[in-house]
Write a protein that binds this DNA or RNA. Structure first.
Lengths: 207, 207
DNA sequence: TGATATTAGGACCGAGCGGTCCAATGCGCA
DNA sequence: TGCGCATTGGACCGCTCGGTCCTAATATCA
């Protein structure tokens, strides 16, 4: 992948995260990536749609490196990994200063009904994310109650995190996400055999 | 409020829920509400922005009538009301066939960072919603553990529901929302003194 | 009947959109 | 030196956008 292509992708990713796909014009991307003109952009991408697809892929790659990687750390207890992963999501959002929500959730809300091509790609992203959590839960199954439904629990975790990031954006208050993260860990703890006191810190109401 | 105004508001609400605010043109609204032309529309609304604000208000009014009303039913046990409210959210989304997510969540994702006017209005909507849940939790406090944080729990409920509706939209599968609703009730149940077996049905893993 | 809103309908505006095309540069490499 | 590619820069296209303006037709009620 050429440098310029990555440069365009990064500029577009930032803009789309801030303003959404439709409200980010190709001219905005050109300005953001400091290209010389339209022809320069269309030298690298066939269309704005293609750009959008690749931005989504790249955002997921980044998320895989900076967030999901924690789920696969082999030396850490699986449930603690899950806790660290939730912390990482909070930290990632904190870095952005509350603005610019989840790159997936944003596109989902904007395009899920309007653009089938994006919908299926976003669905695939969430599925890959969920499958990572599922395999972690599988790894942790000796510590969990027998009747834990990994599919349902993984969806619950993702939905809650996505919703929490959205609320944080609206209220411009990272504390919202932090509080929900604590409660989410508590909920996961209720699936653990001994009550969840081991790996998932944060008892009821403890800040 | 004149009939025509309401007609425009309803048409716009449907379109904006489906396609978002930016992707709904004034001409679309005119076609949807069967107006004769632009001047006819601008006879009732000063701008598209004003229309958007009033659509948001109207959506919240509708949600107050059809959803939040359950939270205030005086003859039902508060925790059971909360359960019924969650069921109502599921039913509302089910009616829409999985498409068209939360009218608030959609606008939030699309406009929270880009348009301050919308952001503060959406924040107010979520705050009013949260306050209804808080006062219900206050009512239910004899049944709850002493250390339940009503502010945090109400935010958790809203975030999870919003996230779940979004996931349902992406996967086009109402079962996602139904599963998360069950888990959400279970989580609320963990805040109840006797273990939550009374008002909130649905034990662990029971479908 | 006449005065007054409301409704209808279309022409028009400046701006931005995604996208195409073209001509002129640099710039390394055989 | 000359070939080929990346880069620069701008003109241009058809279309849609939010919004304005102006003129009739139609309903309402004194």
């Amino acid at each position: 992948m050429s440098d310029r292509r990555l440069q365009i992708l990064d500029a577009a990713a930032t803009l789309i995260a801030e303003r959404g796909y439709n409200s980010t014009s190709v001219d905005d991307v050109i300005r953001g990536a400091k290209l010389s003109g339209k022809s320069h952009f269309y030298h690298y991408f066939r269309s704005k749609e293609e750009l959008g697809y690749e931005v989504l892929n790249r955002q997921f790659e980044r998320f895989t490196e900076r967030g999901l990687a924690i789920l696969r750390e082999p030396m850490i207890d699986p449930l603690e990994r899950l806790s660290l992963f939730i912390d990482a999501v909070v930290a990632l959002q904190s870095e952005r200063g509350g603005r610019g929500g989840s790159p997936f959730g944003n596109l989902a809300a904007e395009l899920a009904d309007a653009h089938e091509g994006f919908r299926v790609r976003i669905e695939a992203v969430f599925e890959r994310w969920a499958s990572q959590i599922r395999s972690l839960l599988w790894e942790a199954r000796p510590q969990l109650h027998d009747d834990v439904d990994a599919v349902r629990l993984s969806r619950f975790i993702i939905a809650t995190l996505e919703g929490a990031v959205l609320m944080t954006r609206v209220k411009r208050d990272i504390g919202v996400l932090e509080g929900i993260a604590i409660d989410l860990k508590r909920f996961i703890g209720t699936h653990v055999r001994d009550g969840g006191a081991v790996a998932l810190q944060g008892g009821r109401g403890v800040e």
